[in-house]
Design a protein around this nucleic acid. Sequence first.
DNA 1: ACCGCACCCTGAGCGC
DNA 2: TGCGCTCAGGGTGCGG
Length: 291
Amino acid sequence: MPELPEVEVTRQRIAPLLLGRRIACVETTGDSYFFLTKPAKLRRALPGRTAVALDRHGKYLVVTLDNRARLVLHLGMTGQLFGGGVTSVRLLSAAARASLAPEAQPVFRPDSHTHLRLRFADGVPDILFRDVRKFGKVFLVAEGEVNPRLAKLGVDALRATSGDLFPLLRRRHTAIKNVLLDQSVIAGVGNIYADEALFLAGVRPLRRASRVTRAECERIVEALHQVLRRSIETGGSSISDYLAPDGNDGGYQDERRIYAREGEACRRCGGRVRRIVIGQRSAHFCARCQH
DNA sequence: ACCGCACCCTGAGCGC
DNA sequence: TGCGCTCAGGGTGCGG
């Protein structure tokens, strides 16, 4: 699932395919809540525009256009953004994969889950946004318009300090895990990195936020920076659907210490990794290493 | 102001 | 083989 590192890797790899190129044509699927801006409006408004910047705010990608409008993308749970011409068996359905020669690497063709396609001049690779579950989002923000979804985002997780976080923890009586996932507190942290950071910091995910000490808060922020940076370095985590824009898996899933390791041995003490549910989401922890 | 929960969606994996 | 069920989860919005 795309969290800050996966979105950042996507940003870095999509930028050279996007920046400075004039959009010639836009293809979309039909109306759905995936499109917070009507797809017909996107098809009308985007051609002729050139992207001048590609930024990331938390898990949002923000494309600034030459008319100062912004095209905003969120990958949701299963969103994949990649350049045209990508070859990857991972992008095929299980059925299509099964009928393929083992070493074949067919070029991906836009399918019914490819909701947005930006096309450029002839011969320039296009950019595809695919999202099977449609939890992702696409919308346009006019120049000067304040978008509430972007406005309420907290400090980006890579820039967050314990000075940002600790005062907020004092006021919250819910589990620390819930607060780390709250994008209005710290933007960019999702389920994987929240669990990883809490494990490294030695704090149980169910601990009430208001009972986290200042020293623990500092360890949590430090651990978040460590896991997020390392994941970006290794290309992100490909645990369920995430693929880097070149169609390949990231590498961080192999470095996971706790997430989705229920029943396996804790990498620090050898104890059994436990899984519980907090706020409708799975949380993983080691009862011996986390207090 | 804060908290918990239902909901949006679809493919994978399971039991029968 | 194939059906139907459950599960996964980011973010929003609701009711308490």
